[in-house]
């Protein structure tokens, strides 16, 4: 574990000594909980319609596929006209596009980012690398099945998929959300132990809290 994460005594500016345990003091330890649907179906449907019309993407590119998101943000493909936009922080986003291969090191950051996003939240796996490893299938450093580590709602195949494929993917994502099937965050909460076990199996130096929103 990194020294800055270890329990230690710290001297404040006023000369007082106090104990700091970063993993407990700075993060939340409570596991995520399942978010129940609204009290009546028509309301939940309305919520889902609203959610599907405001897809806010976390601007976090992980692999080569991230290149395809740039033309989408700019006038040529202009995803904004579909109510899709990119946000700079996990707190403001509800869609996480894993844009290609995830090295173990990036997986760690991706997990933290995902957990910091507000529910309901969705994950799209972009490119073959997220599906079965793609051309990095025998790499020593990349994961091969994204859905073992994060709940994926939709995969977009290709190496790399064109921006048009992403636009089609957004449309499919909207349908999934509207149908009420985008329950990734709840799935993550329900199978939290399974996901954590899978994550810890590949991340050998786990030096963060189990859940850190």
């Amino acid at each position: 574990m990194k020294p800055e994460l270890m329990k230690r005594m710290v001297k404040g500016p006023d000369g007082q000594e106090f104990e700091v345990e970063p993993l407990r003091d700075y993060y939340c330890e409570a596991a995520p909980t399942v978010m129940p649907a609204a009290y009546i179906k028509i309301v939940e449907d309305f919520f889902n319609w609203a959610r599907s019309e405001s897809i806010w993407i976390l601007g976090f590119g992980t692999g080569c596929g991230a290149i395809e998101m740039r033309p989408l943000m700019t006038p040529r493909f202009d995803a904004y006209r579909y109510g899709v936009q990119w946000r700079p922080t996990p707190r403001q986003s509800n869609l996480f596009i894993i844009s290609g291969y995830l090295s173990v090191k990036t997986l760690k950051r991706a997990i933290r980012s995902y957990e910091q996003m507000q529910s309901p939240k969705y994950v799209i796996g972009l490119g073959s690398c997220t599906i079965n490893g793609g051309m990095y299938w025998d790499s020593y450093n990349t994961i091969k099945r994204l859905d073992d580590y994060l709940p994926v709602d939709l995969y977009i195949a290709g190496c790399m998929p064109r921006p048009e494929a992403l636009l089609a993917g957004f449309m499919d994502m909207k349908k999934i959300i509207r149908a009420g099937n985008a329950e990734g965050a709840n799935k993550y909460a329900e199978n939290f132990d399974w996901y954590k076990a899978n994550q810890k199996q590949v991340i050998h130096d786990w030096d963060m809290p189990d859940y850190n929103w």
Partner: peptide, 12 residues
């Protein structure tokens, strides 16, 4: 690297 990857990562 292939062996390492097979032992360490889940394959689809």
């Amino acid at each position: 690297t292939k062996k390492f990857s097979e032992e360490n990562f889940n394959h689809r």
